[in-house]
Design a binder for these strands. Structure first.
Lengths: 357, 357
DNA sequence: TTGAAAGCGCTAACAT
DNA sequence: ATGTTAGCGCTTTCAA
């Protein structure tokens, strides 16, 4: 590892000059001739600053703490981390990741991250829920990922659950479905409520029937199977929006038993909770993929904007893809829109106002 | 953050004394009276060393670089990271994670990790394969995770694929199956070959039929469905070991079409590649869970042993659980054994000699 | 416009 | 047995 000292010696100047130049603070303070020389030798020697040494003076490490819960038990951690990483790398930041069970260990881990001098925190959950930012994080730059901070103590990046339900239902309607059912979950999740409201809003807007009997909240196994069968016999839906695609498996079975062909007699859209279903069931099932990668990505951008306000905001990417019509959509993964909260900057370019929380 | 200097002032000694005491190097160099005092004030003040400052002198940061590929696309990253994290936390280490696509960016990311002074590297893959340790890592302490280093340039921790096939097949045999088939994959993976050999070894050992026609390598969708149907009609297996559980879905359908009940007429064991199948199909399907958490965990322990040989080795956990018989095994997740390579210490207590690579 | 010097928190060689 | 000093790589006054 080559140091400023070496550059200074090689160029015949002092370390402070090198520091000035290499930090871009040389305008009008260092002769441009010298500055050029310094930059040159730095380049040829392949100089890279030592972030540790730097942090000793600046108390900025270029590291972000990524705290996640339930990491080991869900398949989404990778995508969130990847997104976070990409946004971090863009700005030369790096991720210090810890995962906790939310207990005592959490406080310990946060302390550890603080000792290492991280410049800010990502607090990620593995499914959308309402959370309280841990006490130890309240006074630090932080962003909540894939969840919503209850008291708005910091910005949150979460999926737009309402829009998911709305989009999925519009998708079915535009594909010609007229009796659209909703297969939801009995679990008490914000996502359940909001997706259902999106579903209802889309039906209402289209002037289609939206009776309670088109809505079934189910668990797993026999219960789910029974309800899927009942839904088919009772309502004869021609489209079903499934809370997630592991629910859709029951509809496959129910449909098969009635000699109905999925993709022709019955269309399905499910929020992807496991790739394998789409992989094996494709093409008739359309899946909506939760924007895990994007949440990680935007959370970091949001956090960096908070840490380093002077820097120019990076452009916003497209946040909402148009759903392709069903007949060519088989198994296609669809990115849905994001909610962004707590940031005037980001809100400006944000997804259409939608919802609830 | 409270510093050594403050402790020194408070106790009325010099910083070096504090350093000696707090690093446990005070035996015979510092009067125990003073040492006690120092330790006391450190404790009451809640002193925690600043790893950055320390690293400036020692070039040991207490950080490990975790490099992973294909992180975003598989559901296993979380578990591996979690395991790595737990083993790291145990020793006060922390993980600096980056993910790469294996291209130019990889070298860059590795450089970044080096600048941050990580003490060693984990190089993780998301499915078992043969890899070459990146050039930039060859001269550093490193451990390959969920893959095997081709030239044995560093230790590797990977699933024991042979044992997986062997265990799964034994499981079926012990549950009473006599015609055990194998539903493998057409993909060219080390795991495919090795699991199949394990399967064959178990059949041979038990003196059961092991003809080639009991073995079907399949892809997805129609091909898989056709082969599953053909297997059923042609061979009438009473047990099937599936390369992974997303394959087993075809057997469910084939069995249903023949009014055979899975769990009674036909037993299945599949290597878990997605929890949802087990969740929705349970109980008749037994899944074997790949030891992702354990691999992460052991990789870090292995790496730390390499970095810090003087420390006492931590005890080895049980690496291989006994499979419960099928009638009470519905949906149970079974941890399989691990291969550990490149470490005499760990090899001593390793899983039964098994295999191949 | 440049350099010398101090100091971030810590460790380690060298004096007492 | 303890303190003094130097220095890790860098930033930042402060002088020149």
């Amino acid at each position: 590892m080559i140091t400023m000292k070496q550059i200074a010696e090689r160029t015949g100047v002092s370390v402070s000059t090198v520091s000035l130049v290499l930090n871009g603070r040389d305008k009008g303070r260092v002769k441009s001739e010298i500055a050029r020389k310094v930059r040159n030798t730095a380049k040829t020697l392949g100089y890279r600053p030592n972030p540790m040494a730097r942090s000793l003076r600046t108390s900025k490490t270029g590291m972000l703490g990524f705290i996640s819960q339930e990491v080991a038990t869900t398949p989404y951690a990778g995508a969130i981390i990847q997104g976070a990483q990409d946004a971090a790398a863009e700005r030369g930041y790096v991720l210090l990741t810890v995962s906790t069970d939310g207990g005592v260990r959490e406080a310990e881990q946060i302390q550890a991250l603080k000792r290492y001098g991280v410049d800010g925190f990502l607090f990620a959950k593995m499914y959308d829920q309402d959370v309280d930012l841990p006490q130890a994080l309240r006074s630090c730059p932080a962003v909540v990922v894939n969840a919503v901070e209850r008291a708005d103590r910091c910005p949150s990046i979460a999926p737009d659950e309402f829009l998911i339900g709305y989009d999925a239902t519009r998708h079915l309607i535009e594909s010609g479905c007229r009796r659209v059912a909703y297969l939801g979950t009995t679990q008490d999740l914000p996502a359940q409520e909001d997706r259902m409201r999106g579903y209802q809003a889309a039906l209402k807007e289209a002037g289609l029937p939206a009776g309670q009997s088109l809505i079934r909240l189910v668990g797993f196994n026999q219960d789910a199977m029974d309800q899927a069968n009942d839904l088919m016999d009772d309502q004869h839906p021609d489209g079903v929006f499934c809370f997630n695609d592991s629910r859709s498996i029951y509809l496959y079975q129910a449909a098969a038993a009635r000699h109905l062909s999925i993709g022709r007699d019955l269309n399905l859209v499910g929020v992807d909770n496991h790739q394998v279903i789409a992989e094996t069931m494709a093409p008739p099932l359309s899946t909506i993929e939760l924007p895990h990668y994007e949440m990680g990505f935007w959370a970091v951008r949001r956090l960096l904007a908070q840490i380093n306000p002077r820097r120019v905001a990076l452009p916003l990417p497209e946040t909402r893809a148009v759903l392709p019509p069903l007949d060519q959509a088989g198994g296609v993964r669809i990115h849905c829109a994001l909610i962004r909260k707590g940031s005037t900057r980001l809100d400006a370019a944000s997804a259409p106002a939608s919802t609830s929380r």
